[in-house]
Design a protein around this nucleic acid. Structure first.
Lengths: 228, 228
DNA sequence: ACCTGAACACCGTTCAAGT
DNA sequence: ACCTGAACACCGTTCAAGT
């Protein structure tokens, strides 16, 4: 006659709760350690329960991207298109930098999510109201690419390793790659660097961004057109 | 007394043979279908046999990248730094485009491989002999990033799907994302596009590349310095 | 000493059996 | 109708047993 105790159900699962847990888990343990099984365990739930709220893992990752993009906030009006676009891109950058895995996951997506479409649409709007033709806006969007979200793909991770390598190895490096060695030496002694010896990612990002935005402004003023 | 027939050994395994088979398999079946187990099967070998020639799968992928980079060929001298750099980057691009998986795999690598270091070194050399300071060269390399290898990360894949979607969906898209719709309409009707309606990737790549190279040349002429 | 089959510790997802 | 445990079809890699 005694009924079994009701299962100690936590607040019922929802898509939102699944996504929040996934973001938190990825923040804590890294994106490689995020699996459907571990996420289910985290939520005190059997793996298959997740599939009621996300169709599959790809859709989970899409949702996580949208969650982060939601932290960007609305565009702030600027005195001109260039500072408005610049501010918006840097806002996206700081949102993505808040989650170490975010840029990696965005890179792996191919289909746009609603938040990404909305963000893209707002940026196109900034160009158009700033006096860009449809044609030039189109090429500007392609030229900026992932930089619109505040990150870039570097050739390789050039942050200096924890310990300087074996001197013999270093000497061999310098002999084989003299130009790289010259750059590395200069960067290592760079006083202005914020992060100590090595490269200041934020400076490099803004340097490249301004190079592109300045170039685009020059084309706009010139009335550039790809069909001309 | 009858000896067992000698095992019908194919030419013995070597690192080079493993890498060539991996490249061929990835070319044929895509990078997602490339597993250590399938590669071993392709070579008529037990999976563990591969581990004598590559330490693990990461090192296999590194080797594959180096194989593709080896197809770039040596730098050709140009009349000026800008055309020399441009030609070298476009050569890298065409090498990578020969393997659909190459850009994806390069993106996933973090440590540089010998061929990538050699390529990077040669590009730095082109800047330096072209009159760039160490400082400006450093920032130029960061600004170009993966574009040095001839590819960029787009925000999302905007190539038009095979069939135009449900008209109701299209109308909803246009209502929610008016600026994107405007661009998409213009691109779809673009006569000059090489690939039919849609975007001409090669044009977009060169547009952005020239925007950056032109900007860098302007900085070089001005004697720009980050510590100034 | 060398080689390798079986095993380990995972995956994402399907599916049928249970309530 | 709903839920879920077990199973399926894979992974990369370790390791001990066999030659």
């Amino acid at each position: 006659m005694t009924q079994p105790p009701p299962p100690a159900r936590r607040t019922p699962l929802s898509r939102d709760r699944v996504l929040r847990a996934a973001v938190a888990l990825a923040d804590r343990t890294g994106i490689d350690a995020l699996s459907m099984r571990k996420l289910a365990q985290e939520l005190g739930v059997v793996p298959m329960a997740l599939y009621k709220h996300v169709a599959n893992k790809d859709q989970l990752l899409d949702g996580m991207v949208d969650f982060v993009l939601g932290e960007i906030g609305p565009p702030a009006p600027g005195p001109d298109w260039q500072s408005a676009v610049r501010a918006r891109i840097l806002a996206a950058r700081s949102a993505l930098l808040g989650h170490t895995w975010a840029a990696t996951v965005v890179r792996s997506r191919t289909a746009p999510t609603p938040a990404l479409l909305a963000y893209t649409d707002s940026l196109i709007g900034l160009f158009r109201t700033g006096g860009f033709s449809v044609d030039l806006t189109h090429h500007a969007m392609h030229a900026l690419g992932s930089r619109l979200l505040g990150f870039t793909q570097e050739l390789f991770d050039d942050s200096p390793g924890p310990a300087p390598a074996d001197p013999a190895v270093l000497r061999a490096m310098a002999a084989n790659y003299p130009h790289i060695a010259e750059l590395a030496m200069a960067a290592a002694h760079d006083e202005k660097s914020v992060v100590g010896p090595g490269c200041d990612d934020q400076f490099e990002f803004e340097f490249a961004l301004d190079l592109l935005l300045d170039g685009l402004e020059r084309l706009r003023r010139r009335g550039w057109s790809s069909v001309g």
